[in-house]
Design a protein around this nucleic acid. Sequence first.
RNA 1: CGGGGUGUGGCGCAGUCUGGCAGCGCGCAUGCUUUGGGAGCAUGAUGUCGGAGGUUCAAAUCCUCUCACCCCGACCA
Length: 573
Amino acid sequence: MRWSQTYIPTLREAPADAELISHQLMLRGGYIRKLASGVYLYLPLMQRVIDKFSQIVRDEMNAAGALEITMSVLCPAEIWQESGRYETAGKEQMRMKDRRNHEMVLCGTHEESVTTLIKGEVKSYRQLPMNLYQIQVKFRDEIRPRFGLMRGREFIMKDAYSFDATEESFEVSYGKMVNAYFNIFRRAGIEAVKVESDTGAMGGKAAHEFMFLVDTNAGEEVIMFCDKCDYAANSEKATFVDPNKPTLDTEMKGMETVDTPGAATIEEVTFFLKVESTRLAKTLMYMADGEPVAAMIRGDRDLNEIKLKNALGAIELEMATPDQVQQYTSAPVGFAGPIGLKEVKILVDPLVAELKNFVVGANENEKHIVNVNIDRDFKADLVVDLSLAAGEDGCPNCDAGQLICKSGIEVGNTFMLGTKYSDALGAKFLDEKGAEQLIIMGSYGIGITRTPQAALEKYCDDKGIIWPKSIAPYLVEIIPLKPGDQTQMEAAEKIYNDLEAAGLDVLMDDREERPGVKFNDADLIGLPIRITIGDKSLKDGNVELKARCEKDFALVPVGDIVGAVKQLAERLN
RNA sequence: CGGGGUGUGGCGCAGUCUGGCAGCGCGCAUGCUUUGGGAGCAUGAUGUCGGAGGUUCAAAUCCUCUCACCCCGACCA
């Protein structure tokens, strides 16, 4: 492709509303433009990136035995109502009515559609296993779209769905997908790690996420890693071994209400009462689907709202407002406790449940109660892990390990759905014995538009993008410094034709621009290899061959360029 | 939804406090010169100042309402 024949509108300055480096580079490099909040247009370079990454995904999915199909973005609301997700998806779901006033959904994922398809087709265990996938646009009315393609309201996703007759067969299917994912990200030049994750609104029994680890503030997820073993989990999901176990009293002491004037926070109370924060239980008031809930966490720990939400089976969970706290505890924020609470469900973290003689709020302004003991002084409705794992916590998987926090961008996910959707929508088959069984399902996503942008958080420098070669829009950029010069252009055309004939993707900057402009644009759009054709080296029959990620260039005779380019590409990421 | 902020030519911004000709840099067009890391000179085009209403002799500027966009939080299949 010649620069003059395509459309690469580079910008000297990034539009002011782009925060992330990757977002700025996408805009400045002429890859994308914004149409509305969370809605982007993909320009020619981006389209090529999408095509290249999609092709890698396609190759590996096909190699794993999955079949490509295309399902409609539109879906009748009824099957979402049947699966129950019409409720749980809530405002996240784009909806519309057709001209007959029929409710339709603009899908953000396709479990309902694909399960409806399968239920009409699969009748026998002989037809299983099966895996169907598509690469298609998705709609999610994100509460807060941001970071360009990282969190849009419309985006492209590869979504796959597996169908199996038995658990054993499902394990194999799931393993194939996990394996395919590692291949995909490796081939795309992106190092992704697999971590345990919460299942969220997808439901099912377990899930994993594939994370691209970054040092920038683009990481929307916090991942906990063990420094000794291979344990890795999203912080939403991570469990841990408590490293700060307090020494426990042997006997229960008598409960006593004490004045704690001005002491509402954990720090203030520990200072005032001169007790360790590990001997104090904080009681956090939440509203779960409109019902008040008290969650008790040891003073030194933070609550994991996902764990709380899951323990309650709640759809909506939010912290109680100060007014609600006053209403349910008869005290201002800071003095809530479990004793005397009425009509409030009490959930207690195990680290609190094991304590003896601990401190809680008294549900009375400026008062706390000391020497409180669970069961004797109050009853928990449920004792369940509610604590957020933190750095330096013990690893839940091995003895010696400590957890470490890292920031990551989710580029893929895999869900063990079990029979949630087949049950809800009635997708059954007959097994060998002629007995009716529910199909066991999995679903598997990869962000086609998100992943390349995520990669840019790492693959860039102060001049611009440095694409991994397999998802770069072109492999090579040729820069004839003087397009008006006949000798230079002859060399440029020969190189251009030779490279194209060798099947390599080439972009030639044939614009009548000054060298500085071309060099800067080349660095900005970030093609892996640059060939500069100028008088300096051409007088000896050479051109300059340079990798975007390296500082030095090599002189290569015009006739040897194809081999030299291939050789250079070989050692680039 | 709560908190903070921004809307002025394609992009980046000044002007708003204190009402008085709508400006600057880049980009764009034409010409000449220039040509190995974002050229110089000259000439030129491009704006319903986000929108609606109001105050005023006069509104980008003051008031009211509204819309869009960004950041933090909640949310995230």
